[in-house]
Nucleic acid binder design. Structure first.
Length: 873
RNA sequence: GGACCGUUAGCUCAGUUGGCUAGAGCGCUCGCCUCACACGCGAGAGGUCACUGGUUCAAGUCCAGUACGGUCCACCA
């Protein structure tokens, strides 16, 4: 009786082999099964040597779901699943990065509010909009609210965003232990972040400094070096007429004429003989008539402009260097809001002061126009401005050039001041295995290129507060040098609402009282502690997770944030634990669109991942992801997803065939215990054992792509050649005994292939597993090459590809005659060298069956050739 | 300007210590309803491995250089 006549089972969850296997609905079914059965739960009793721990990247939940999430998180999941099958207790947490500026911006647009820290908390506050209904581009109608109200709205919104991410990741089949979930703004993260900061403070690794720093005038906050990016901007050289002591002109090119009132010196190279005669003299600035010293410094480039430059406080980082090293005065003119400040610099008086008055309160752009007009009117501008383009520093999330403004900020040491710390941190990099290895170079280059410590304070609202207060003197001025520190037990605290020991709320902001530190920490200052947060560092934890997982085995992340997340995490672990945070860093590439551009929201070329999962199935999308090698940028390619889907379907059908050999699969389970006697079968197992070794080595080296490629390659040869060869024998056409060998081999192969594919294609493999076996495939062990090799015995693996090659030749005789492959062959002759014929001998009977030949003859010859006489149709 | 990565079939990519006539998939061409699969199967065409030189019995693979593409950093008068 044929299988078509057998009763069918519709689904697979109830066991048995469906007549028409399908991928439809497979995700929902297994996601739910995995959710309720806890197959991915971390064993909290496992000792460190049994654990494989992963420091999962917490995605920024206020961003949109991106196909890049699917890509890189799949990579991590394949490793997690592999390690789990190798018998490790896998610590695989998920976190949400909801802390920081992206969430603030989203809340502003979603609810139509803006944070005004001067307002009191309003318990009945209702935002003007909900569910994102607030019309875009209507900033002026954003309603001000207090900081606590604003934070409530942030908390409210991230909950929604996090649900969408969890749904995506579950549907994708990530094997995370969801009970380990954290968020970077949750109470635990705030407590750990503050505790680590206080440790840094006590150890002298955190300090505050009143100094010029990069400042975003839109967000009105300081930013760190790691958050900068250069953008080409149109600009123009303006040649200004300064005056030498003898009354003659000194011409200076500048792209920032509006900073002329901030000019504190004129600089040239110490070897530049055009200017060395001016040593010790003063130069008079145009418009303002301020006398500034002529100074000399190596950084002045004789080739640029006229070879001399005006030093302003501050036009760029070189100005800061000159200002600091040459002990120049500060003469700031740009305020925190990016406008000219009200106070006229002391050095500017008389007519100059009247000119300055015209730019007070103006933006940089408008101020420049005014000053250029003033220069023209005073005949201090030589010729017309010459347009050019040059790179300008921007905050990566901002859209106005950064200014340099002197403010009080908090820093954490990171080796950026050229001390021993830099060397120690580079050495830490040597203790981490990077995958691929060359990524370590980026880490080292970044440290070597640092030009200052890590600025962690931000003048923003939604983040972890810096947990300090300051005493106010009798004049109401803060005494910054002696911050008031909270008790560790009290963490987390918010200094804007909590009160330091020995004070009461009534003395807040009063002379002789105290004030809270108004700043929060940058989001990286908290996310650099994800190893600590996920594993409950220094928390009250009866399970002792920390000692079971730290240092972690694996940090997966994208290569573009080596300079931020990877580096800052190493810094924190170096200080807290005197250790690397993890022993392996696995770097994923980016997704490129078909034009080879990085996919990003701003370019409008993002594909919604949930649609892809729906259309192709999760396994197919995972297949595409896993084909992107570690560290390699990968083209977005739906074609690869189609291929992945076909592979999954092929697995269903090939499995159905194999299991059909053993009556509902039960027979095939029994066949696992039966001996494999035929040489062809044993040769296949020999090849399979080699495959297991290759896949294991690849996964051990974090190369999921190679493991997939080898396994897939084997699998297609297995279905095309091996199954075709043994199909007839397996149907017992030549006797039960040799059929049993085929069954035993098919059972082993299916069992092994399902395990090998399980890390990449968890859904379809689990589906097939459920047809004939108990429990979850994902809780099974990784296949054992030695056992397969024992079954293979002395059979030569090369027999299989040779037989496949001969079978292909036999098929060709029919294809070239444009006949069906079922066409019988009357007589065929296989020509091969003697040694090859001897190797092939055990496969002759199977080849005869597979090619529907009445007679197969062999003949010695130089190379493979097949001739066949086909039966008349 | 510095560093790193890449350049193999029309497209996307393998090619692990140098080793027979360089591989896969897609696409293309020509066939086939073959009792697991037509969401399938079979066969075929298609490449001076970016270029130049070197080492070697042997180079896609190692070395030097060049070109092109990408990324990061620096450059901001």
């Amino acid at each position: 009786m044929s299988s078509d006549d057998q009763p069918t089972t519709s689904g697979a969850a109830d066991g048995g082999i469906p007549a028409k296997p399908t991928l439809d609905g497979i995700e929902a079914r297994w996601v739910e099964q995995w959710r309720t059965s806890d197959v991915y739960a971390f064993d909290r009793s496992a000792s460190r040597d049994r654990v494989f721990s992963i420091d999962t990247p917490p995605p920024t939940v206020s961003g949109s779901l991106h196909v890049g999430h699917v890509f890189s998180y799949t990579h991590t999941d394949t490793i997690a699943r592999f390690q789990r099958m190798r018998g490790k207790a896998v610590f695989y947490p998920m976190g949400w990065d909801d802390n920081g500026l992206p969430t603030e911006r989203r809340v502003q647009n979603y609810f139509g509010v803006r944070c005004d820290p001067s307002l009191p908390y309003d318990a009945d506050f209702e935002p003007p909009a909900t569910e994102g209904k607030f019309p875009k581009g209507s900033d002026k109608r954003q309603q001000p609210c207090s900081r606590p109200n604003f934070i409530e709205l942030c908390d409210r919104l991230v909950v929604e965003d996090e649900k969408a991410f969890e749904h995506l990741f579950r549907t994708l089949g990530l094997s995370v232990d969801w009970s380990l979930l954290y968020a970077t703004i949750d109470e635990r993260s705030r407590r750990i972040s503050q505790r680590a900061f206080l440790n840094n403070l006590a150890a002298g690794h955190a300090y505050q400094l009143q100094a010029p720093s990069l400042w975003d005038v839109t967000f009105q906050t300081a930013v760190a070096q790691a958050e900068l990016e250069d953008r080409d901007r149109p600009s123009a050289y303006h040649k200004l007429r300064f005056t030498r002591p003898d009354g003659s002109d000194l011409l200076i090119d500048t792209t920032r004429p509006e900073l002329l009132p901030a000019c504190v010196a004129v600089v040239a190279h110490p070897d530049d003989e055009r200017y060395t005669p001016l040593k010790g003299q003063t130069i008079t600035t145009p418009l303002y008539g301020v006398e500034v010293p002529m100074v000399f410094h190596e950084l002045a480039d004789p080739e640029k402009g006229t070879g001399t430059a005006m030093i302003c406080t501050f036009g760029d980082l070189t100005d800061v260097t000159w200002w600091r090293e040459l002990n120049l005065p500060a003469r700031p003119v740009i305020g925190r809001n990016g406008r000219f400040i009200d106070e006229t610099p002391d050095a500017i008086t008389g007519e100059g002061a009247e000119r300055y008055a015209e730019v007070i309160g103006k933006t940089i752009h408008t101020g420049r126009e005014i000053i250029v007009e003033q220069l023209k009117a005073a005949d201090k501008l030589v010729g017309e401005p010459r347009p050019m383009t040059h790179p300008v520093k921007f905050f990566e999330k901002g859209d106005k050039p950064l200014e340099i403004i002197t403010t009080r900020q908090w820093y954490i040491r990171n080796g950026g001041r050229g001390d021993e710390l830099a060397k120690a941190l580079i050495d830490r990099g040597e203790q981490i295995a990077f995958h691929p290895d060359y990524m370590r170079t980026r880490y080292r280059n970044w440290i070597e290129g640092l030009n200052g410590d890590w600025l962690i304070s931000r003048q923003r609202f939604f983040g972890v507060p810096i947990p300090l207060w300051y005493r106010l003197d009798d004049a109401g001025e803060p005494i910054y040098d002696e911050p008031l520190v909270p008790d560790t037990d009290a963490l987390p605290i918010d200094p804007s609402t909590d009160v330091p020991t020995g004070f009461d709320e009534g003395r807040r902001n009063q002379p002789g009282g105290f004030m809270g530190e108004p700043d929060i920490m940058d989001t990286w200052a908290t996310s650099s502690l994800t190893p600590q947060i996920a594993a409950l560092w220094a928390e009250d934890d009866p399970d002792g997770l920390w000692d079971r997982v730290y240092p972690y085995d694996m940090r997966p992340q994208a290569h573009d944030i080596i300079r931020t997340w990877l580096f800052s995490t190493v810094v924190r672990s170096h200080f807290e634990e005197d250790s690397v945070p993890w022993t392996n860093a696995a770097l994923s590439g980016w997704i490129l669109d078909p034009d080879r551009k990085k996919m990003s929201k701003s370019k409008g070329n993002v594909v919604v991942p949930t649609d892809l999962l729906e259309q192709y199935g999760s396994d197919a999308v995972r297949y595409w992801s896993a084909s992107g090698r570690p560290g390699t940028d990968t083209a977005f390619d739906e074609g690869q997803m189609k291929i992945g889907r076909r592979l999954a379907i092929k697995l269903l059908n090939a499995s159905k065939f194999a299991l059909g050999m053993g009556a509902d699969g039960a027979g095939l389970v029994a066949a696992l215990e039966q001996p494999v006697t035929e040489a062809v079968d044993r040769a296949m197992l020999a090849r399979l054992a080699d495959l297991v070794d290759e896949a294991t080595t690849a996964f051990d080296g974090y190369d999921y792509a190679r493991a997939l490629e080898r396994t897939e390659s084997f699998f297609w040869a297995f279905t095309d050649d091996y199954i075709e060869l043994v199909k007839n024998r397996a149907y017992a056409s030549r006797g039960d005994e040799i059929a049993a060998s085929a069954h035993a081999a098919l059972a082993r192969a299916l069992d092994t292939l399902l395990r090998l594919f399980a890390p990449i294609l968890p859904f379809v493999t689990e589906e097939v597993w459920s047809w004939w076996r108990e429990g979850s495939l994902h809780a099974q062990s990784w296949p054992d090459a030695a056992a397969l090799r024992a079954d293979a015995g002395d059979a030569p693996g090369e027999l299989l590809p040779l037989a496949g090659q001969v079978l292909s030749e036999l098929r060709r005789t029919k294809t070239e005659a444009k006949l069906s492959l079922r066409t019988p062959i009357t007589t065929a002759t296989i020509v091969l060298p003697d040694t090859q014929l001897a190797l092939l001998a055990p496969a002759i009977d199977d080849l005869r069956d597979a090619s529907v030949a009445a007679e197969l003859l062999t003949e010695a010859g130089d190379e493979l050739a097949v001739t066949a006489e086909l039966a008349e149709v």
